[in-house]
Simulated assay, not measured.
Amino acid sequence: MAARIEHLVTSGTFSLDGGTWDVDNNVWIVGDDSEAVVIDAAHDADAIAEALGDRTLRAIVCTHAHNDHIDAAPALAARTGAPILLHPDDLPLWKQTHPDRLPDGELTDGQQLSVAGVELTVLHTPGHAPGAVCLHAPELGTVFTGDTLFQGGPGATGRSFSHFPTIVESIRTRLLALPPETVVRTGHGDSTTVGAEAPHLQEWIDRGH
């Protein structure tokens, strides 16, 4: 059974720097009928577990440690026994949400995660958060960008732990270097492609989000 990508949207809140906002998050499941990984266990461990069914969960991969992307990770890990993986540069953010539960493993740039016969390559793409990563799956023609790149521009950089020049450099060097037909599956909202976003890089820089 070939690997496939499944998608669910969960709803909750995002909190940072004293503010709280209602958000809808994309949760991505990559796998086949027997095993899978979850990218960003957001808000609702029950809904994610239901979508997984009886498949073996190999890992819970965090694109970054803002609370809306990790709030359900410990509960999902407890239910499934899967390890939570996070880039260590995001540990300060992680500890704001889960001070008593550390991730189980580290993500590193260039690391490859295997599931259902496909490889997900970790790309460290700081800017939205210091430890933000994207996951490139060339066999599936896709990259999971978390909150680094959206349809229409970079992720937000107006709050703590973020930096606009850094996110632009991450997008320019790591994401826009991918094949233009690569589908960009984001942490919130609609998907896009590398080719659709690449022409707008200079506009983003000029706007200076």
Rank of each mutant, 00 (worst) to 15 (best):
M1Y: 11
A2S: 15
R4F: 07
L8S: 01
T10F: 08
S11P: 00
S11A: 15
T13V: 14
F14T: 14
S15L: 11
L16K: 05
D17R: 11
D17V: 10
G18H: 03
V23D: 13
V23A: 14
N25G: 09
N26M: 04
V30P: 02
D32K: 01
D33Q: 12
V37K: 06
V38Y: 07
I39Y: 06
A41Q: 00
A41H: 03
A42L: 02
H43A: 13
H43C: 11
A45H: 00
I48V: 03
I48D: 01
A49N: 07
D54W: 10
R55T: 10
T56I: 10
T56P: 02
L57S: 01
I60E: 02
V61A: 10
C62I: 09
C62P: 05
H64Q: 14
N67K: 03
H69N: 13
I70T: 13
P74F: 10
A77M: 09
A78V: 01
A82T: 01
L86A: 11
H87S: 02
P88M: 04
P88V: 07
P88W: 15
D90G: 12
K95V: 14
K95D: 08
T97S: 09
T97Y: 00
L102G: 14
P103A: 10
D104A: 12
E106A: 14
A116C: 02
T121C: 02
T121P: 03
H124P: 04
P126T: 09
P126I: 08
A132E: 12
V133R: 00
C134F: 07
C134R: 05
L135I: 08
L135E: 04
G141M: 06
T145C: 07
G146W: 09
G146D: 12
F150C: 08
F150I: 09
F150V: 06
F150E: 06
Q151W: 12
Q151H: 14
G152N: 04
G152C: 06
G153K: 01
P154K: 02
G155V: 07
A156Y: 10
T157Y: 10
S160W: 05
F161P: 05
F161C: 03
H163M: 11
V168S: 11
V168R: 02
L175H: 03
L176H: 03
L176K: 00
P180E: 03
E181V: 08
R185C: 11
R185N: 01
T186V: 06
G187A: 08
H188I: 15
H188E: 12
G189M: 12
D190Y: 09
T193M: 11
G195P: 03
G195A: 04
E203W: 04
D206Q: 13
R207V: 03
G208Y: 06
G208P: 00
